[in-house]
Design a protein around this nucleic acid. Structure first.
Length: 426
RNA sequence: GGAGGAGUGGCAGAGCUGGUUUAAUGCACUAGUCUUGAAAACUAGCGUGCCUUUACGGGCACCGGGGGUUCGAAUCCCUCCUCCUCCGCCA
């Protein structure tokens, strides 16, 4: 959530940010509305505080009047204070509605894109900051897309998933299940070696956590919701893990805070259809290892670069061709200030599949979560949060199966063999 | 799921028959005095948010969350959440 103070001080910058994201004039005007409401809020607070101060003083003296037996005077003062109170009610309402109005507007305003974010409104405007320069893998004759490979080797059963749950809930079996588990363990071990503390969070979150990361109310329709308990199934570990620092005041020496977590991820993906959803390309449940960092504002962008480098390292170890995109204003997610997407080449589909998204949210999440730290002057400041997938399994598996198919079956990358316990799926 | 108890500042812990409590006191923490240094002792400071002020300062709100009663609420009422004890169920 944007800070009103920042909006006041950088009005033009914030407006330009909305424009970069492709927001219309009406949305941009809401910035002025926030400032207008905040003016009302301040004025109301000033007068209300003065009234309350009077009420307080008089109420105190009523107490002493009663004690000294001056009942008559006390009762007179009582009615006087009652009047004061009545006259303060409109102010109280003004204050409340101004605060509520500001809140509603702020909930709809996305983070301001970082200056590095490219102009543009669609994914075609994303900038490839690192392309794959080596030759792309050449496949054997009669190479198959992963959904056919999955069936051929009996490692993923999409039909059983449909029977048990519904479309988009694949069932992994045999070496397919073991490959999943191997990847999860490999990713977690890599993260631990890089200094991330492993977290195994709850897979359901409450409303406050959803609001904290900016997932609510923005992505309401994308999450599975348990009405009876007012809980949401997590679409990513980002939510439970980042909320660890909700309502926390850190010390500067606590930075950097580095968490990693494996969780299944649940996404309703309402409105998706067509070839995009074939096989593992887009599913309702998939596994992911997420990395989360809480950083000092001065270091967060340097940290973002390090996280990008870290993800690159894993992809290199898996020997998968990838490219890195810097998302343009229109493609940037709601809470992010700067995002890099990783895409892995799926040979048999001749498609680039998004497997990771690494973002710096700056103060957007921490302002909602009230995650702060004491700076060297003892002042409380908002921290920065970052996160990234490292990595999302389903599409990694898709690319892995397709790119590594040989005449005898599917080769397992060297680094994974100690985890799988086998070197080929035949 | 049922019955009972409890949630107070970093921690511990008063207040909880409504009104000099501006939330006592202790510990921890920070600075200073003393000391060669340290400890001890002493002195002072020590929550968050907001409004106001050039500044010094002043004001308001917050005692799990929300609402209510009252001139006045940490203190009474309602509601939700969490924790503890007992019963039930259960991997």
């Amino acid at each position: 959530m944007l800070q009103v103070k920042v909006i006041r001080e950088n009005t033009d910058l914030i407006k330009a940010g909305l424009k970069k994201r492709g927001y219309n004039e009406e949305a941009i005007k809401s910035i002025d509305e926030v400032i207008r409401l905040d003016d009302i809020r301040k004025a109301a607070q000033t007068s209300l505080d003065a009234k309350l101060s009077e009420i307080k003083k008089h109420s105190d003296s009523i107490g002493s009047l009663f004690k000294s037996g001056k009942t008559q005077e006390a009762n007179e003062m009582k009615s006087m204070v009652a009047e004061l109170k009545t006259s303060s009610e409109p102010l109280e309402n003004d204050l409340k509605s101004a605060i509520e109005g500001i809140r509603e507007l702020l909930f709809k305003l996305p983070n301001t894109p970082h200056s590095k974010v490219p102009e543009g409104l669609t994914e075609d405007d994303n900038v490839v900051v690192k392309d794959w320069t080596n030759p792309l893998p050449t496949l054997i004759d009669n190479a198959l897309p992963h959904w056919d490979l999955a069936t051929k080797h009996n490692i993923i059963d999409f039909k059983l998933g449909v029977k048990i749950t519904g479309a988009g809930f694949p069932l992994y079996r045999g070496k397919g299940a073991r490959l999943q588990r191997a990847l999860i363990n490999f990713f977690l071990d890599e993260a631990r070696d890089a200094g991330y503390e492993e977290i195994l969070p709850p897979h359901l979150i409450n409303e406050a956590s959803g609001i904290g990361t900016g997932s609510l109310p923005d992505k309401e329709g994308q999450m599975y919701y348990m009405e009876k308990d007012n809980l949401y199934l997590i679409p990513t570990a980002e939510i439970p893990v980042t909320n660890i620092v909700r309502d926390v005041i850190l010390k500067e020496s606590d930075f950097p805070i580095k968490f990693c977590a494996y969780t299944p991820c649940f996404r309703r993906e309402a409105g998706s259809y067509g070839s995009d959803v074939k096989g593992l390309n887009r599913v309702h449940q998939f596994d992911k290892v997420e990395i989360v960092q809480v950083e000092h504002p001065d270091k967060s962008h340097q940290t973002l670069d390090q996280m990008v480098t870290y993800v690159e390292g894993i992809l290199n170890k898996l020997e998968l061709p990838y490219r890195i995109l810097r998302l343009c204003g229109g493609d940037l997610t709601f809470a992010s200030a700067l995002t890099y997407d990783f895409e892995v080449y799926s040979a048999a589909q001749d498609k680039w599949l998004e497997v990771s998204s690494v973002s710096n949210f700056e103060t957007y999440q921490t302002n909602r979560m009230k995650c702060r730290y004491k700076d060297e002057n003892g002042k409380t400041q908002l921290a920065h949060t970052l996160n990234g997938s490292a990595l999302a399994l389903a599409r990694i598996v898709a690319a892995l199966l397709e790119n590594n198919q040989v005449v005898d079956g599917i080769k397992i990358p060297e680094v994974l063999i100690p985890y799988t316990g086998f070197d080929i799926i035949a």
